[in-house]
């Protein structure tokens, strides 16, 4: 009688303090039936990775509006790998120019949601990975 739940960490790396999007996503994913943990502001890549591991989440969603995504998102993917946790799926959102997306994906960020993405798209994305994360 296994009772599995998808767990998601919403992380805010970098220094920007605009957490409207992160909080909205956290709340909306909870309403979609997932267990959600939110890190709060100004997290280093290392603390996001440690949190993801301790909480054994299936996904890490990163929100960043300052433009630092090109260095911070791949750093987090890399640290997950180093910690034997590359199976945790990383996705991102925020002010991210189209041009940057291919490169982020190449570096292991599974999906990028640009501003205005309906929450349904995020849920569809998560559901499409349900099997992959074994839930």
């Amino acid at each position: 009688m296994s009772d599995k739940k998808i767990r998601i960490l919403i992380g805010k790396p970098g220094l920007d303090g605009h957490d409207r999007g992160a909080k909205y996503i956290a709340r909306a994913l909870k309403d979609a039936g997932y267990e959600v943990i939110y890190t709060g502001l100004r997290q280093t890549p290392q603390s996001i990775v440690n949190t993801a591991i301790q909480e054994d989440v299936d996904f890490v969603g990163l929100s960043l509006l300052s433009g630092a995504h090109n260095s911070l998102f791949p750093k987090i993917v890399e640290l997950l790998k180093e910690n034997d946790a590359e199976d945790i799926i990383v996705f991102g959102g925020g002010v991210i120019p189209e041009d940057d997306i291919p490169n982020l994906k190449k570096q292991g960020v599974e999906e990028i949601f640009t501003p205005g993405t309906p929450i349904k798209d995020v849920v569809d994305f998560i559901e499409s990975k349900r099997e992959k994360v074994g839930k």
Binding site: A26, L29, G33, V36, I37, T39, T44, Q46, N50
Partner: peptide, 21 residues
Amino acid sequence: SSPFSGGALLGDRIRMQKHSG
């Protein structure tokens, strides 16, 4: 957990987050 969606927003951790490193 929310009795409606079964989801949960696990908020306690935020207050201890600075220890996560």
